[in-house]
Simulated assay, not measured.
Amino acid sequence: MPIYAPTLPPAPDLGHGHPPVLVLLRFDFARLWRQKIGRFFGFAFLMLLIWKVARIYVDHLLQTNQAFKSMQDFAKTILTQGADFQADLLNPASYLLWFLVALVGGGLVARDTLYRVRPLMYAHPVAPRDYLLAKLSFASALPFAILLPFALLPWLMSLLLAGTNGPVWVTAPLRLLPAMAISSVLMGSLAVGASSMAATPRAGIGWVLGLVLGAGTLASMIHGLTGIRAIDGLNPVMLAEAWPQLFVGVARPLVGWVPALLGTAFHIGLWTFVAARRTQPSEAVI
């Protein structure tokens, strides 16, 4: 009897279903939820947020209650005021937030490398561009979501207590939200780029922390040897803290506008390029 070739199934319609970027984002968020990493960090950030909101109430009492009038001058000497106070609302963008970004973002690409998942993804309608965009979006959305309550809740508390005369400026969210977005993209791109160079999630955490601390140490050494303050624009931690200061108009920010722009563009461009190269189909198989 003649042997006929098997009938192939019809080609799938790639126009149906959710975009690959959204599917990968949902998968990463579900994996983060199952890992239960946020218990310790959630408690730490919650305590910081409670302190920020309580500070608004204390400032309101000092301004309105005559019984605390004698403490008003003392409070001004130990607590930040004006533009410094507005920028200080986002001070969790320091080592604690960087450590959380390293803990979560260090395994974003390295875990797929370890278990050789990317060849399976690229065999489906997932382009390397979709994969990279999903990882960068997730790594950037995490710090932005953590910083968002620090920008909005004290602002709302100030409006409820004192209206436009409260300690938090009425325009504070318009200034802090762009600063948060830039800092979050900086953190996300560095985390994804570092994770793409690691073979395991633990190594990815080390890569992120090593790059952050190493770049900061290198910038501090060059600054100390040459006296050039603009070199601090290579320090990712200083950049993340400087952007809120720049947007609210602090008199002496950690990094000036030009070094901050150049340093942030350098880090985002470099680590996005590294991640794009390391997530190509040719790099998907070890």
Rank of each mutant, 00 (worst) to 15 (best):
31 R>A: 08
177 L>M: 08
186 L>D: 04
7 T>V: 15
268 I>S: 03
30 A>M: 12
3 I>F: 04
142 L>I: 13
223 H>D: 07
251 A>W: 00
221 M>C: 10
179 A>Y: 02
95 Y>C: 04
270 L>A: 08
51 W>S: 14
182 I>F: 01
248 V>I: 09
273 F>T: 14
201 P>M: 04
105 G>P: 08
70 S>N: 15
97 L>Q: 03
114 L>F: 15
227 G>Y: 04
117 V>Y: 09
211 L>C: 08
190 L>H: 00
268 I>M: 07
164 T>V: 14
269 G>P: 02
51 W>M: 12
249 G>K: 12
96 L>E: 07
66 Q>P: 06
91 N>Y: 11
220 S>D: 15
266 F>K: 00
198 A>R: 00
252 R>Y: 07
97 L>I: 05
269 G>H: 05
109 V>Q: 00
58 V>K: 06
198 A>H: 02
227 G>T: 01
225 L>S: 05
15 G>N: 13
15 G>T: 15
110 A>W: 05
154 P>C: 10
255 V>C: 01
261 L>I: 14
175 R>W: 08
9 P>Q: 10
121 M>C: 03
112 D>C: 02
166 G>M: 09
87 A>C: 04
188 G>A: 01
224 G>N: 06
256 G>A: 07
154 P>F: 07
78 I>V: 15
116 R>A: 13
101 V>T: 08
243 W>P: 14
116 R>N: 12
230 A>I: 00
232 D>V: 11
58 V>P: 00
213 L>G: 10
230 A>L: 03
158 S>P: 12
204 G>D: 00
17 G>I: 06
185 V>F: 09
66 Q>R: 11
21 V>N: 00
40 F>A: 12
263 G>C: 05
60 H>V: 11
171 T>D: 15
273 F>S: 10
233 G>S: 07
98 W>T: 03
170 V>G: 05
131 Y>R: 03
60 H>K: 02
74 F>D: 06
69 K>I: 10
62 L>G: 10
117 V>P: 03
47 M>L: 14
133 L>F: 09
190 L>Y: 00
238 M>A: 15
75 A>W: 14
161 L>S: 13
144 F>W: 13
269 G>F: 00
200 T>F: 04
242 A>M: 02
131 Y>I: 07
104 V>L: 12
212 V>K: 06
209 L>F: 06
59 D>P: 01
104 V>F: 11
76 K>N: 13
108 L>A: 02
